[in-house]
Amino acid sequence: MTQQQFSSVWIREPRQPKAAGLRRDQIVAAALELLDSEGMGALSMRKLGAKLDAGATSLYWHVRNKDELLELALDEIWGLMGIPDPEQTSWREVATTFAYNFRATMLDHPWVTSLIGTMPSVGPKAFALSDQLRRTFIGAGFTGVDVYLASSTLTSYVLGQVIPEITATKAFGEKGIDPEIVIEAMDELGADYPEMLADYRETIPADQQTARALAFDFGLLCVLDGLESRLHQPHK
């Protein structure tokens, strides 16, 4: 299999706008509005040009194709995390703030989940966030590659929790499936597991958003506790 060549909008200098022409930041802002209002499937260079009342030439002056536009949009998302200064805040507070803000950002911009991991994150805002997390885990006491493994572990946890949440919301709506219908089905299909069904009735909130928030809190604490315990283990 031939190895794919690396390509990115960030490896070439941005073009200056033509006289009275569109700026790149205007194009990206309009793309974000379209993505937020109509989703990934609705974004096209033609539709974006119509929104900006501009021809294709004005758009292609700044971005060669839709992929480059999406790279720029993704970098804007990385800039929305708003985490505290790692030098002024405890590492757990920074990590917790990042996790909650990352979750909230993805829920506000669900289209971004289809870009993370498929588009390169090598823009200035992605690097700034990565460096904040790097300094956070160095301040916690991690060294070497563990600094980056700790950061990726936290990031992967948030992605693993939120992507299924977004997928379920797309499939079943904000409120999800009627919990009474779910319980009736479980009573019938899981009749051989009465204790588990009783636990489900007594412990799982009927409101899906509450249940998801509780699950996120529990898992995040476990991840942070695990990272902290790692710091106290002697290196072999």
Rank of each mutant, 00 (worst) to 15 (best):
35 L>C: 06
213 A>K: 04
212 R>G: 01
66 K>A: 07
227 L>K: 07
219 G>C: 07
58 S>W: 02
159 L>I: 13
50 A>M: 11
98 F>R: 02
163 I>N: 13
62 H>I: 05
179 P>Y: 03
185 A>N: 08
194 P>E: 08
193 Y>V: 06
100 Y>A: 12
112 V>G: 05
31 A>Y: 02
122 V>G: 00
11 I>E: 12
123 G>M: 03
3 Q>L: 14
113 T>G: 10
115 L>K: 02
167 T>H: 11
167 T>I: 10
53 D>V: 07
78 W>E: 10
76 E>W: 00
193 Y>T: 12
139 G>I: 01
12 R>L: 03
26 Q>S: 11
47 K>Y: 02
179 P>Q: 08
122 V>C: 09
99 A>N: 05
38 E>L: 07
52 L>F: 05
226 G>V: 00
100 Y>G: 04
178 D>N: 14
18 K>Q: 14
199 D>A: 14
150 A>H: 03
173 G>Q: 05
128 A>M: 04
111 W>Q: 02
126 A>S: 15
208 Q>K: 14
86 P>Q: 07
92 R>N: 11
62 H>N: 09
99 A>M: 06
2 T>W: 01
179 P>T: 07
196 M>W: 03
67 D>F: 02
10 W>G: 00
49 G>C: 07
174 E>D: 10
170 K>W: 08
179 P>F: 00
207 D>F: 04
43 L>M: 10
192 D>Q: 11
228 E>V: 07
155 T>Q: 12
121 S>N: 12
57 T>F: 02
123 G>I: 04
221 L>G: 09
115 L>C: 11
90 S>N: 10
22 L>S: 08
66 K>W: 04
216 F>G: 12
133 L>M: 15
103 R>C: 09
66 K>M: 10
